[in-house]
Amino acid sequence: MTEDRIIPQVLLLASRFDFSCDYVVAELRRRGTPYFRLNSEDFERFAIVAVPSEPGVYLHAPGLTVQLTPETLKTIYFRRAVYPQEPHTDKHSVHEQLSRSHRSAFMRSFMVFDSCKWINHPAASYKAEHKAVQLSVAHKLGFNIPRTVITNNSEGILQVAKGDHTIAVKGLETVLVWERGLETFGYTSLVDTEFAEHSHLSSAPLIAQEALENKLDLRVTVVGDQIFCASVTSSGNPIRGDWRLEKTDAEFKPFDLPPDISEKCLQLTKSFGLEFGALDLAAQRGTYFFLEINPTGEWGWLVDQANLPIDKAIADSLVANQ
C-alpha cells in the first residue's frame, strides 16, 4: 500500500458534521494549500503521538501520516466548542463521556502551536463567549445595547422592564440540558413581565433585556477586515422574538450596514482578539442595537442562502500569512 504523507500548512479542527468546514476545505483545495482536517469523530482512526516539548503532533492511519510541526503549520481553524457541555451527562456511557472530554481537551491542546495564526484562538473565544463581557465591550465602543440586567430576582426584572409589559429573557450561556432521552434548548424568549417577575429565578441568574419590538434582525459575519451582513425576515417581514424559532421560513438577504456600524463590528471583533465573529444586531427605527457575538458562530447557510462569500474570506484569512 502506498502511503500518503501530509505536512499541512493549515489545520482544521472540526466535526465531521460541520458542513461549513467542507466549504473551506474546497477553497483550500482550489488554492492548492496543504491542509488537514481533524474531526473529533475520527480520533480512533488514528494512532496519535503528540510531543509538547517540540511541539509536534503526529497522526498515523493505514496509508496516511500527518505531521504537524511549527516549521510548516501556519494556521489553525478551530471549529470546536470552547465550553463543552455534554461530556459529563448520563446521556452517554462512562467510556463515551471520557472519550468526549479528552478529545475536546486534545483539540484545545493544539494551543502549543503558539506561533500559528488561529481562527479563533480558544483563549480569545473563551473571553468573548461571555455575554456580559460582550455587552460591556460593545457599550464602551459606542454600540447601542438593549437595557439589560443579569438577575435572579423580581427586582431585577422590574428594573429592566421599566413598566414595559414584555421583556426578553435568555440564558447567560447556552441553555441546553438532557433528561430521560429528552433534550431541552432555550431560545431568547419574549415573556410577560408579570409572569417573569413571579417565576422561579433564584437558582440561576439570567439575562433580562428590554424587548425590542418591530426590529429587523441582522446577522453580521466578520472575517479579518471583511464584513458580511444579512437581514433575517419571514415573508418579507421582520420576525418577532428569536428568529431561530422560524428558521425554516426565514429569508436571508444581503444587507448594507451604515459605515459606522460596520466599523464598530470590526472594532468589537478585534478588541476580543478574534479573527472571526458572528454578530447578532437588531435595527429598530434606524437605531442599530448590538445583541451578541458568537466567536464560533455558524455561517455556512449564508453562503447558500444569501450568496455571501464567507467561505472564500475564511480561506483568504487562513492562507494570508503563508
Partner: peptide, 26 residues
Amino acid sequence: LIESPNRPRTMTKKKDIETGEDQKAE
C-alpha cells in the same frame, strides 16, 4: 457534497441541532 446540486440544505446550526452556535455538546 457542497458542489452537488442535490446536497442537503445547510442550516443555521451544525447538523441543524440546537446545541448552540458552536455545537457546545462537545
